[in-house]
Design a protein around this nucleic acid. Structure first.
Lengths: 193, 193, 193, 193
DNA sequence: TATGAATGAGGTTTCATTCAT
DNA sequence: GATGAATGAAACCTCATTCAT
């Protein structure tokens, strides 16, 4: 119907801007008020009407997913890069550090991932599909190398890292990094034990 | 209203029965629907009116606290007993096992403990006050003995155990016991490392 | 739990009063603004909170059904009475008169009955179950007597009466009575035709 | 915006195509979801933006009117033709048959005609203005001939036919034709009665 | 004391309508 | 003229909390 396509692309740019604003605002609001924060709080911060939120993210989980997605890519991509440049166990440790940074600054996301709330039912699956393979590769390499114990699956590890990376009230990210480090120590294979 | 007023003690017994029913029901409902479950769900299960809930537990946190309390005592008391009968590191490990059993079967409690929700603001404090000293004693003994590293505080440890004990969707308590064991391995002091 | 039952009955009376007020208000509002009128309009007229409406009538159809029910009984009961005191064709005509009075003063109900809106899916069934047998008895008697044609089912007749009894904008109930009378004339069995 | 502006007539053709698509789509959607169906549903089916709908049909009633109009002309024109080729009473019967075909396949239109909704306030007037005279002519001829009773006005008749032609859930157009036939039988003048 | 009906604030969601492109 | 993104009012519905009985 529209002979000239130009306006369409222009419009898309506007929409894109709103979508980005929403995801950013949602990230901030989730961090403050949790994943169940009122939609209004998010749209106000994004400077956008409620309708716009629902147009782009019909379900709450869509928005949460977008927020997760917005940070997850860099972490996912870091996996292969670290594997290439470091010995397996070290690569795993460095990757976990990155992962903790991601989760620890996104209060409430992890709890959404395991909340059991039907609205978020798909999220853990998405999360695992996206990061599971990266962890599996890192873990397998270290197990093959013989420096890491083999009795813990990639998903178990991912879940443990997720929980330990949860922001703890009254403590900073250092706390998370410390307990994650302890956990990874425990993961080291030590035949003498 | 009631012409035949039952003796006071009789009433007390009734109240006690209701309180117990409420706490038990709340535990079950929290496990199924999370700590934010509708009050009605709890009172229906307890076979009691909503008013009764509010009489005994004016705030949601009071009820959560009661539920936590109902399981926490045995775990708290187990601390000294285990310390008396086992070497420090082993005592710590056994106690952690008990603790995990408690938390892993109370879905949602840990997340309430760290939810940041103002309604639960007092809970972490209560939790720490109650269990902090027990962990501290077990931990100090092991550090003194030299079998456990000294760079992790009792509260950090308690928090880490709490997170790792969270029920993971699709996995059972075995998962929690496994990752807790890994964590405790990491806690062991190993000068050779 | 409550030893003395008296208060319960008392309370029921209060609730009953609200329910009656709601049904009456709904009848009035449906007549003015149609069956899809905002819930608020109804509760305001009934002098009751929205919550009360939803407690007693969780679905819109429940309320419509109650409104229908509130008038339908007298009409249903009139069937046998008229059959006993009049020749069949006359009984049918008199009953139709009563039926038209009922429907014509409840603007919008009939349209709900055949709206196709999923919310009202059960209503036509309810309506037919309630009145179908009455019409069938009246009709059968007249057919047996030989004064009424036999090629129209009771449900067809009921539906036709319902449609012709719909309040017509700008016309009063006389209009409905007149067209219903014409229809019933058409129903008369006349072998000579 | 558009550098290459198409000739005006070309534009007109496009607009015409859109209008036709909208009316057709509206007819289909009204049949399925009622006259109050979301605008989006209609524009999607027409393959057109919402803005286009509002440009051509600023008010919902305009669209309904267009849909009604699209079918009404043939029926209106059939009046004189039938009057010319048949005896009055027969002409009336045949015309009613055509009318029923029109209404029975346009679910929801008749209810819009008498909904009382301010948005449709003009529709009944339009409907009567268009078809009233046709019915009046047919009716007058039959009354003059002496085969049809004279105590029912053309508008009363039109309204009755409209109601009886309403699609009945679970029944087909046969049902409507049957009850309309009964009604017309009732309309016949029979001095013997 | 216990009850559960009533309340209404607060959140969600839908959709008619506008308007920049 | 056409588009469809954005808007926000308006409706829905749920539930924590109060309070008359």
């Amino acid at each position: 119907m529209a002979e000239d396509r130009a306006p369409v692309t222009r419009r898309r740019a506007d929409a894109r801007r709103n979508i980005d604003a929403l995801v950013e605002a949602a990230g901030a609001v989730f961090a403050t008020s949790g994943v169940e924060a009122p939609a209004k709080e998010i749209t106000d911060l994004a400077g956008v009407g409620v309708g716009t939120l629902y147009r782009h993210f019909p379900h709450r989980a869509d928005l949460v997913k977008a927020v997760v997605e917005s940070g997850i890519d860099a972490v996912a991509q870091a996996g292969p890069a670290l594997a290439a440049g470091h010995p397996p166990a070290e690569a795993l440790r460095l990757w976990a550090r990155r992962f903790t940074e991601l989760i620890a600054t996104k209060r409430g996301l992890a709890s959404a991932l395991q909340s059991g709330d039907p609205a978020f039912r798909e999220l853990p699956g998405y999360f695992l599909r996206r990061l599971g393979p990266i962890v599996a590769d890192l873990l397998d390499a270290a197990v093959t190398e013989g420096t890491v114990r083999e009795d813990l699956g990639a998903e178990d590890l991912l879940h443990a890292l997720t929980m330990l990376s949860q922001p703890a009230p009254g403590r900073g990210i250092d706390h998370n990094q410390r307990v994650v480090a302890v956990f990874l120590d425990g993961l080291r294979h030590d035949p003498a034990r």
